[in-house]
């Protein structure tokens, strides 16, 4: 194997790992996939280190050779389960059979190029989630109807902010504030059971419940650093949401509008 081929392999592995990380795969899956891939393509010594925002891969094809290292910084992570599933399947095929590096690389590239999340349905799905969680937290059907609007408001704001690459903390504060204002206005009509189920139901769209569980999973599984990063992230988002939702409530109270 020539040096160029080795470098190409390494680049391919790092890209695979980075792709998995950026679509929200678990840390152990990322590290294991890259390790198995490297083994399957003839590396004798592999070491992989991944945290949610970074991956480093070091390879050696024979014990006496110099090691090759490549790293990637992952700027943005989303949760795209289709991509995780497809890339995982591709890795399995590569490990099990004799897929050439070229075809592996081109298949990975093809999957990544259409990996943009399907955003078409989100304006329908966000209100649906808000309404469902409103009923879940004890709201009436009228509350759920108000939550539909709140869900739409949250989608509008988060979509607008993410389009212009705004800070996640800021976008969370703004979305939570707008959502809670809408809920309070609805509850002023007197038809709802109160603003509480509407607010908490729609805020489930922003609140980091899954991140909090994942932080514990990472921590207990031994990925302590990744766990702590996730913890800091979820605490920050939670503060943002509580702050954002709290501002209108306090304002309404100060203005003496009955809530």
């Amino acid at each position: 194997m020539t040096d160029a081929e080795k470098k190409k392999l390494l680049d391919c592995f790092v890209r695979t790992g980075a792709a998995l990380l950026s679509c929200g795969a678990e840390i152990y899956r990322v590290e294991e996939s890259v390790r198995l891939l490297a083994g399957a393509y003839g590396a004798s010594d592999v070491s992989v280190f991944a945290i949610p925002s970074f991956i480093a891969v070091t390879l050696r094809f024979a014990p006496e050779e110099d090691a090759l290292t490549d790293t990637r910084r992952i700027a943005q992570t989303t949760t795209d389960m289709s991509a995780v599933s497809d890339i995982n399947a591709l890795c399995r095929r590569a490990v099990a059979g004799n897929l050439s590096v070229e075809s592996f690389s081109s298949q990975l590239e093809a999957r990544l190029s259409r990996s943009a999340l399907n955003r078409r349905f989100l304006p329908l799905v966000y209100p649906l989630i808000a309404g469902a969680f409103c009923v879940f937290f004890g709201g009436s059907l009228i509350d759920a109807a108000a939550a539909l609007v709140c869900g739409l408001v949250i989608w509008l704001i988060t979509d607008f902010f993410s389009r212009y690459g705004a800070n996640a903390f800021f976008s969370c504060v703004a979305a939570a504030a707008a959502c809670s204002t809408t809920a309070l206005l609805f509850s002023l009509t007197g038809w709802t059971t109160g603003p509480e189920p509407i607010i908490i139901g729609s805020l489930m769209l922003l609140v980091p419940g899954v991140a909090l569980t994942n932080f514990m999973r990472n921590l207990i599984a031994g990925d302590v650093l990744s766990g702590l990063i996730k913890l800091a992230e979820s605490l920050l988002v939670a503060v943002a949401v509580a702050l954002g939702a709290g501002i209108p409530v306090t304002l309404f109270r100060l203005l003496g509008v009955g809530v």
Binding site: M81, S82, A83, F121, L122, Y126, I129, A132, V135, M204
Partner: peptide
């Protein structure tokens, strides 16, 4: 009712998470 609501909410989040 909450079980039904949980089903709908999970369906929504499955779409958001781009589950196949």
């Amino acid at each position: 009712q909450t079980v039904l609501a949980a089903f709908i909410a999970c369906f929504g989040f499955s779409v958001v998470y781009n589950v196949p």
